[in-house]
Design a protein around this nucleic acid. Structure first.
Length: 176
DNA sequence: AACCCGCCCAACT
DNA sequence: AGTTGGGCGGGTT
């Protein structure tokens, strides 16, 4: 539950439908706080948001740079999320290291959990990397779907649509 | 000090 | 191709 004092200031949220399902965005003045993607039902998403933050939040229209990028990405466009301001304050140093390394994997390419572990100087930390990615608060923007297992299988995906969505995103990027 | 994991690798069948 | 078993490191309770 994100109900820390430091978040009490203001959280805004928006919901919007896309080709990969309902998506949602939570923001603070520090930037993007959390992103949701791939929900079949709007209410599902709403419940997840309700479970993640307390009542100090305000609904705002689904507009803005980040949301526009997400919409374009979901329609199959080659979108760079570079420059998106994100609120990292609730993440551990290790999670930040993993997510920032994942951020560098370009559109249309993939990397393995093991290799990502090596690039952050943690050569036997593949599983720890998976653990950190499982809690990625910014799916799509931080492309955790581009990280797959060493044997070529997709591995897991904890955002809205599960592994099905992971495969769909990878397929979308190959075709662009 | 136990668990739990979006893993990996070698060694099998 | 699938399965098994040991090892792994970070996070959570």
């Amino acid at each position: 539950m994100i109900n820390d004092k430091r978040y009490r200031v203001l959280i805004t949220y928006s919901l919007f439908p896309t080709s990969i399902g309902w998506c949602g965005v939570l923001t603070t003045q520090r930037g993007l706080l959390r992103l949701y993607a791939g929900y079949a039902e709007r209410n599902q998403l709403l419940n997840h948001i309700a479970g993640a933050v307390d009542s100090h939040k305000k609904k705002v229209p689904a507009t803005g740079i980040v949301i526009d990028k997400i919409k374009r990405y979901c329609s199959g466009k080659h979108v760079s999320f570079e420059g998106c301001k994100m609120d990292w304050s609730s993440l551990s140093p290790f999670q930040q290291k993993v997510l920032k390394a994942a951020l560098k994997i370009p559109y249309g390419s993939v990397e393995t959990y093991g290799n990502l572990a090596r690039t952050i100087g943690c050569p036997r930390g593949a599983r720890a990397v998976g653990n950190a990615l499982a809690k990625n608060p910014f799916p799509l923007v931080i492309p955790c779907h581009r990280i797959i297992r060493g044997d070529g299988k997709p591995g897991g995906f904890s955002a809205g649509g599960g592994v099905m969505l992971k495969n769909k995103l990878l397929q979308m990027e190959q075709l662009s």
